[in-house]
C-alpha cells in the first residue's frame, strides 16, 4: 500500500490528481472497520487529517475534516445534537463530517441535517471546485456523486441558518448505537419548515408534503400534527432488517418527526 500524507489542500489535490482512485482516509472510523473486518486492502491511501483547510469552520462553510467532538460543542444546534449521538467519545474524537458524507450510509447521522438545511456539498479537485445540492450528492446507499480525483472540502451552509433546528435519533441503546430512525427538522424565521429522515429509505428523505402542511407562522393544532405524522409515514420507504421492522420504522418516524417539529417551538 502507498500512503500520501499531505499537509495542505493543494498538496492533497495534487496527490489525488496523480492517483484519482486512491482511498481517502480521514478519521478512519469507517474505513478501518472495513480494513479490519472485511479485509479491505486499499492499494493507495490519501490521508487527510493533516490538511488544515479541511478543519476550517466559518459562517458559511464547515470543513469536511471537522470532528464530531468539535461539532458537538459547536454553535450549530442541530449539528451539535446529532454529533453527540455518533458512536462513542473515541469515535467522535476523530470521526469527521466529510467522512459521514463520503460513506453515505442510509443511517448516516449528519445526512438528515444536511438535507433539512438544503445545504450543499463542496467538492474539489485539481481542476477546481463544484457545489452539489445534497440530493445531487447523495445518490443511494453508500453511493455519492464524488468523482475520482475529487475530495469533499466541506458543507456550504445557507446564508442564514434556521433559528430553529432539532435532531432526534432512535436506537435501542442509550449510547453508541446506529440509528433505527433519525430525523432533523429546521424552521426558518418566516416559518418555512423542512423535515428530513434517515434510515427509512436507501438514502435520506425529505417529507415535503408534511413540510408544506406545517410551514407558516401558525403553531399547528393537534389535528394538523396528526396529519403531519401520517404524511411523514407516507413519504418514507423503510425496509425490514436486523435492527427493526419496516413497520416499526414507519411508526417511529412519524412519532419522531412530530416530536422533533414540536421542539422547534419550545
Amino acid at each position: 500500500m502507498h500512503i500520501e500524507r499531505p499537509e495542505g489542500l493543494d498538496e492533497a489535490l495534487a496527490a489525488l490528481a496523480a492517483d484519482p482512485h486512491a482511498t481517502l482516509l480521514a478519521g478512519g472510523t469507517d474505513l478501518m472497520v472495513e480494513v479490519n473486518l472485511t479485509h479491505r486492502r486499499p492499494a493507495s491511501v490519501v490521508a487527510l487529517r493533516r490538511v488544515p483547510e479541511l478543519r476550517e469552520w466559518d459562517e458559511r462553510m464547515i470543513g469536511a475534516g471537522v470532528s464530531w467532538a468539535r461539532m458537538e460543542s459547536g454553535p450549530v444546534t442541530g449539528l451539535a445534537q446529532l454529533a453527540r449521538t455518533v458512536g462513542s467519545p473515541q469515535i467522535r474524537a476523530v470521526g469527521t463530517l466529510g467522512g459521514n458524507l463520503g460513506t453515505a450510509s442510509p443511517a448516516g447521522d449528519a445526512l438528515p441535517w444536511l438535507a433539512a438545511l438544503d445545504a450543499e456539498v463542496v467538492l474539489a479537485s485539481d481542476r477546481g471546485r463544484r457545489r452539489l445540492a445534497w440530493d445531487e450528492f447523495l445518490l443511494g446507499p453508500k453511493r455519492t456523486a464524488r468523482q475520482p480525483g475529487e475530495l469533499i472540502v466541506g458543507v456550504q451552509l445557507p446564508e442564514a441558518l434556521p433559528p430553529h433546528q432539532a435532531f432526534a435519533k432512535v436506537g435501542v441503546r442509550q449510547a453508541m448505537v446506529i440509528a433505527t430512525v433519525n430525523c432533523c427538522v429546521v424552521r426558518d424565521a418566516d416559518g418555512a419548515t423542512r423535515v428530513a429522515l434517515g434510515a427509512v429509505g436507501p438514502t435520506v428523505r425529505r417529507a415535503r408534503r408534511a413540510e408544506a402542511l406545517v410551514s407558516g407562522t401558525v403553531r399547528p393544532s393537534a389535528a394538523v400534527l396528526d396529519r403531519f405524522e401520517a404524511l411523514v409515514r407516507e413519504e418514507i420507504a423503510p425496509i425490514d432488517d436486523h435492527r427493526a421492522s419496516a413497520a416499526y420504522r414507519r411508526h417511529a418516524a412519524g412519532v419522531l418527526a412530530r416530536r422533533t417539529l414540536e421542539r422547534c417551538w419550545s
Binding site: 445534537q81 453527540r84 432526534a168 435519533k169 432512535v170 442509550q174 448505537v177 419522531l256
Partner: peptide, 13 residues
C-alpha cells in the same frame, strides 16, 4: 436526556 429513554438521541420528552 441521559436519564430519559432514548438518551442523547433526544427522542423522548
Amino acid at each position: 436526556p441521559r436519564r430519559l429513554p432514548g438518551g442523547t438521541g433526544l427522542t423522548t420528552p
